[in-house]
Design a protein around this nucleic acid. Structure first.
Length: 664
DNA sequence: CAGTGAGCGAGCTTCCGCTTGACTT
């Protein structure tokens, strides 16, 4: 007799199977097996929001196999992830195979010890946690399937809204508005070069008559809490005058402060931070990063790649400590092993952090095995993880203050020298040594020159893959398995466009957002998500029932839905061109967006029905009639190349090489 | 692999979160 163990992923199944041996058969469910029907609401709002869960078509084979094995099995053990989605998967499977008496085990890391320990303390499925998942699913369906049809009738067919995507869109639109209303303001900094013996050092002007010039612009660290304090040197005239005045002063060192600073390694990667660095350091989209990581995971090179945990398994920590000791020596070990705690909201920590499965496997091997891009991604994972078990870096920073003209001006220079590299040995940051001469208090320095530099305050930057994912995670919107798809969704709906890999809302995106904010501000915001998450936790803890929670949301929501039916249709702004319509010669051509992307049409539509495709040209010529080759998209969104003289010429190809070949 | 927008009003679009594999680049 065997025991049947059920998990989500086939890779997890393989690993666990190795640990457990002959008496256990491990089967993967491949994620959820039940879901609401796609073609209708599937929630009975009249009958306590009863969900119409159905077996997913592609799960039929899997569930048949589970059923078959379960009949002969001694015990059925659910070992799905320990969060609410995992609990629901376990519950749905138990329900489907008609087995009430199943064991439930949970573990935080996939190691032999952790699983054996869990097997000793089997529990039952936690219905409260399952209820929390039901509430989450029903809520998302109600919001998505009630709001989207309103957009079809008030804005345009095929559009969508949802608890997560609409908040993401709102962030992007609101950032654009901040940028639009931002007023640049000019300011000047004054740099003075002074000489000690033959060494020159650049000092920055800090105070005038002991009053501080405030310049604080931390745009690189922008996180929605953007702050800017104006400097007192705004006019060029004044800057030039100060610059001149400095020439006549005596310069005396007034203070020298030295401080040792520690720098600790950042925590190991989660899905969110990996995607951020994939974008920042390799220029990858969230989607691409996940594709590469999936392969690394399947090949057994890294731990699970959809996680919000920064925890590291004890065995892995020991392995890394041993590796650091051997490769770099005891000096590079931290005083005590490092443990990391989650800081992000709503972390459910069903898995470990993303780390190499074996620290002894280096990036070279991955590059040989899978290719350079895989090798590079593995390398940043490896470095980040290993660095967590290395010593702090130590720098000595020096601040030197100089007095000019007995209190008229105060100047400052900073220096920093790396004393001990520690973890930076393998996880280097841009950290430049800036060594200052050994200044002594009250020594005199010689004037070399003084220069004022012009600056302008900058608006906050548009979001990119990295910063939007970071923001979403911080606000508790979306899950590791969905960060990449959130962006794909709002992009494929035509709500946002990429401009130099940063997100800019389109006219449709702005229209949809404003419509939702104006009419559904109670759903389309971050406090709603946060409150709902708290309530879901209360359901999971058994403090609340799920149906009243949903009802409390739905009743007022339904009233708003009803009221909005009378709101008038939203007009989307169209982009004008200078081209006169070649057919009626009355209107100009405008850029409209249809089902297949952008196209040009006459502004007098429906009087004139002229249309013309808006296409991106290539520098190739059509092999048939020498027309220009342009880039087009199929109905399914696939890219292909066609002749600009279509429909007169019907030449088309999938690849650029095919055209070159056809030409030759 | 070749069309789009408005409205007429057939039948259709749509959510979030869990997972891989079958497609293609």
């Amino acid at each position: 007799m065997k025991n049947l163990v059920i998990v989500e992923s086939p890779t997890k199944a393989r690993t666990i199977s190795r640990f457990l041996g002959e008496d256990f058969e491990v089967i993967a469910s491949m994620g959820h097996i039940y879901d609401l029907p796609k073609s209708k609401l599937g929630v009975d709002t009249e009958k306590d929001f009863a969900p119409d869960y159905q077996l997913l078509k592609d799960k039929k084979k899997t569930i048949d196999e589970i059923k078959k094995v379960s009949k002969k099995a001694d015990k059925i053990i659910m070992a799905t992830d320990l969060d609410r989605e995992g609990e629901a998967i376990a519950y749905h499977i138990a329900q489907n195979i008609g087995s009430k008496d199943v064991d439930r085990i949970v573990f935080h890391e996939i190691t032999k010890e952790a699983i054996e320990e869990a097997l000793k303390n089997p529990k039952k499925i936690n219905k409260d946690l399952v209820d929390a998942q039901t509430a989450r699913r029903v809520l998302d369906r109600l919001v998505g399937y009630k709001l989207s049809p309103i957009l079809w009738s008030k804005v345009r067919r095929g559009l969508s809204a949802g608890r997560v995507q609409s908040v993401a869109l709102r962030l992007i639109v609101e950032r654009e508005r901040e940028i639009e209303k931002f007023k640049k303001s000019p300011y000047y900094t004054i740099l003075t070069t002074l000489k000690k013996d033959s060494t020159e050092t650049i000092f920055e002007l800090l105070e005038i008559n002991k009053e501080k010039i405030e310049i604080s612009e931390e745009l690189d660290l922008y996180d929605g809490e953007y702050k800017f304090t104006k400097t007192s040197i705004e006019a060029q005239e004044r800057a030039t005058k100060i610059e001149e005045d400095l020439k006549t002063k005596d310069f005396v060192v007034s203070d020298v402060t030295k401080k040792e600073m520690k720098r600790t390694p950042p925590p190991p990667y989660t899905t969110s931070t990996l995607q951020q660095d994939g974008a920042r350091r390799m220029g990858l989209s969230g989607r691409r990063t996940m594709q590469l990581a999936q392969k690394l995971y399947e090949e057994g090179y890294i731990t699970y790649h959809r996680t919000d945990s920064v925890a590291i398994a004890d065995s892995a920590r020991n392995q890394m400590t041993e590796y650091v000791k051997q490769q770099f020596g005891d000096k590079y070990l931290p005083e005590t092993p490092r443990f990391y705690k989650n800081t992000s909201k709503n972390a459910q920590e069903a898995h470990e952090a993303i780390r190499p499965a074996k620290v002894s496997v280096t990036a070279d091997r991955i590059t040989k095995d899978l290719g350079a891009q895989y090798g590079k991604l593995y390398e940043i994972i490896w470095r980040r993880a290993l660095a967590t078990q290395m010593a702090d870096a130590i720098t000595e920073s020096t601040v030197v203050m100089v007095d000019a003209g007995s209190g008229a001006y105060t100047l400052k220079a900073n220096g920093s020298v790396l004393v001990f590299e520690g973890f930076l040995k393998i996880n280097p940051f841009a950290l430049e040594d800036k060594r200052l001469p050994d200044f002594v208090v009250s020594e005199k320095l010689n004037y070399v020159n003084s220069l004022s530099e012009f600056h302008e305050t900058l608006p906050p930057p548009r979001y990119n893959d990295a910063s939007i994912i970071k923001t979403l995670e911080e606000k508790g919107i979306g899950r590791p398995s969905t960060y990449a798809t959130i962006i794909s969704t709002i992009e494929s709906r035509g709500y946002i466009e990429r401009e130099e890999s940063r997100f800019k809302p389109t006219s449709v995106g702005i229209a949809v957002n404003d419509f939702l904010v104006d009419n559904f501000s109670t759903v389309d915001d971050i406090p709603f998500t946060a409150e709902m998450e708290d309530e879901l936790d209360q359901i999971a803890n058994g403090e609340k029932e799920w149906v009243p929670v949903i009802r409390q949301f739905y009743d007022p929501f339904e009233k708003i839905l009803d009221k909005v039916k009378d709101v008038k249709r939203v007009k989307i702004e169209v982009e004008q061109t200078n081209e006169l319509c070649p057919e009626c010669k009355k209107g100009n051509l405008v850029v409209r967006t249809g089902r297949f992307g952008k196209f040009l049409s006459c502004s007098t539509f429906p009087d004139c029905k002229f249309t013309k495709p808006l296409v991106q040209e290539t520098n190739l010529l059509c092999p048939k009639d020498r027309g220009k080759i342009v880039i087009k998209k199929t109905k399914r969104g696939r890219r292909f190349y066609g002749c600009s003289n279509y429909p007169k010429c019907d030449f088309a190809a999938w690849k650029l090489e095919d055209i070159k070949q056809a030409a030759a």
